[in-house]
């Protein structure tokens, strides 16, 4: 059984806590430290964002962090190197999330092989819907990694089934129609949608986009098997005065959410 399957099937504290960090923001050294801090704070796995020049599914926070990461020279090679280091130091599944063009440019087959060899556990590509992903899914799985697809509030029951089938171990449920960004409040609409997913999906699912408090995380996990927290963390990191306070605030926030799940 893969590490992801292992974690997803039996999370240690009931629900999955999945932090997202933009790799290389504010710099790769801090990213590595953040992943370790997240592991200590009780994260079940971590998503690392591969920055792209035109992140069209992302709101201002992740747009900004992506640009900053690119400006300091973060590329796929640097990210793989960081993953390699992290895999020696923490026991935590790492998922890479990013747009398709950089992968395509590196060479899809070559990149996936290399990613698997340094210990990447899975992939989320927000601009690669299932229709375009047959080859990608096969390549990811043949390298013994996990392909994670997104489901949205607008996905029809047929599409939900297809996404369920395509995803190797679990599904990423986008909470609301929109781009990434913290500070949403989730109402009864979201409850209804989460309940529908619980019924229609056969695999576990985590909810993400706009999750910014322990309270919203708790509400979503009434039905979802976990939450992804991204923009809220990126914002804490952006506002931190230095690396130490950045790590401190991120750890505190994650511990608080962990406590609520």
């Amino acid at each position: 059984m893969s590490r992801i399957a292992d974690v997803v099937m039996k999370p240690r504290a009931g629900k999955l806590l999945v932090p997202f960090f933009t790799a290389g923001f504010p710099d790769m050294k801090t990213t590595v430290a953040l992943v370790k801090a997240a592991a200590d704070a009780g994260a079940d796995m971590v998503e690392l964002g591969m920055p792209f020049s035109d992140p069209l599914a992302d709101g201002p926070e992740i747009q900004h962090s992506s640009k900053a990461a690119l400006d300091n020279g973060t590329d796929l090679r640097a990210i793989l190197k960081a993953v390699e280091q992290l895999q020696r130091e923490v026991d935590l599944p790492l998922i890479l999330m990013g747009y398709y063009n950089p992968l395509l440019t590196y060479g899809e087959t070559r990149f996936l092989k290399r990613a698997a060899s340094v210990g990447v556990d899975g992939f989320i590509i927000p601009d690669l819907p299932v229709e375009e992903a047959a080859g990608f899914k096969t390549a990811v799985e043949s390298n013994r990694m996990s392909a994670v697809f997104l489901v949205a509030p607008t996905s029809s029951p047929d599409r939900v089934r297809l996404i369920d089938k395509y995803s190797t171990d679990f599904i990423y449920a986008v909470t609301v129609t929109g781009v990434t960004g913290a500070g949403r409040t989730f109402g009864t609409d979201t409850d209804r949608y989460m309940r529908r997913l619980k019924k229609q999906l056969t695999k576990p699912f985590v909810a993400g986009f706009g999750v910014s408090s322990a309270e919203s995380a708790r509400r979503l996990t009434r039905y979802a098997d976990g939450v992804v927290i991204g923009s809220a963390l990126v914002k804490i990191i952006r506002n931190a005065a230095n690396r130490r306070s950045c790590l401190k605030h991120v750890s505190r926030f994650l511990a608080e959410v962990r406590g609520a799940l």
Binding site: A57, D127, E131, L150, A152, S156, R159, V174
Partner: peptide, 22 residues
């Protein structure tokens, strides 16, 4: 049917708008 002109085209968009394209 998949929106391809030879190799080119397709639908590389977030899942949220896939239903609108359909």
């Amino acid at each position: 049917k998949r929106g391809r002109f030879g190799d080119y085209g397709g639908r590389y968009v977030p899942e949220t708008v896939m239903y609108a394209l359909d």
